[in-house]
Simulated scan of single mutants.
Amino acid sequence: MTLEQNAESILREQLVVLLKGGFAPNVILLQEFDYKKAGVMLDGLHFSAWVLLGHIKARQHTLLNFMKDPENNPDVWPDAHWPENHTPETKEEWESAISDYESELQEMIDMIAKPETPLFQKQANGLTLSWAALTTLHHTGYHIGQLKTVGRQLGVW
């Protein structure tokens, strides 16, 4: 294995770990969040945990579509999707949203882990699949931090 191949392999492994949430796995945090509190909007905030989850899912979905088919999905940063409803209707709706997030996250992770996925090949829009993975990591991490803070204020943890 060349030095370049080794570095790429290490990067793939690290991206997989970090996309899952590192030492605080995102899916576990979401599953621990009491859905009855997922619609609470704290004073001064324009979002609830439910809105954050919807926003995270929408951006991840856009970036995953780019990774799967960059030629037909070049717009990787459309207007931000912020769900209008602030509360999940049922526990099942909350759990389904988490499951959908987890499924698409796993799909992205599986792509990243495959050595044949061209992480560094520039696409027509000038971006790479590694950029999309890193952007997902950054964006999700930012909003998971907000969700964790909201949860602490609401006594979830």
Results as ranks from 00 to 15, higher is better:
residue 17 V to T: 07
residue 58 A to I: 01
residue 61 H to C: 10
residue 56 I to Y: 02
residue 16 V to L: 07
residue 135 T to N: 14
residue 55 H to K: 08
residue 20 K to Y: 04
residue 138 H to R: 11
residue 117 T to F: 12
residue 143 H to Y: 11
residue 20 K to M: 04
residue 18 L to K: 10
residue 76 V to N: 02
residue 151 G to E: 01
residue 124 A to K: 15
residue 43 D to R: 08
residue 4 E to R: 14
residue 42 L to P: 00
residue 78 P to W: 10
residue 22 G to S: 06
residue 9 S to Y: 12
residue 102 E to K: 06
residue 133 A to H: 02
residue 20 K to G: 10
residue 40 V to P: 03
residue 119 L to I: 07
residue 59 R to E: 12
residue 84 E to A: 11
residue 92 E to T: 14
residue 16 V to D: 07
residue 125 N to S: 13
residue 42 L to T: 08
residue 71 E to N: 11
residue 14 Q to I: 14
residue 143 H to Q: 12
residue 95 E to A: 11
residue 151 G to D: 01
residue 58 A to C: 10
residue 148 K to I: 13
residue 107 E to A: 13
residue 52 L to A: 08
residue 152 R to L: 07
residue 111 M to I: 04
residue 7 A to G: 14
residue 151 G to S: 00
residue 28 I to D: 09
residue 64 L to K: 05
residue 66 F to R: 05
residue 42 L to E: 04
residue 34 D to I: 05
residue 130 S to I: 02
residue 48 S to V: 04
residue 11 L to I: 14
residue 23 F to K: 10
residue 55 H to R: 09
residue 119 L to T: 05
residue 68 K to Q: 15
residue 105 L to D: 00
residue 92 E to Y: 05
residue 1 M to F: 14
residue 113 A to C: 05
residue 19 L to W: 02
residue 62 T to P: 11
residue 115 P to K: 13
residue 1 M to S: 15
residue 121 Q to M: 15
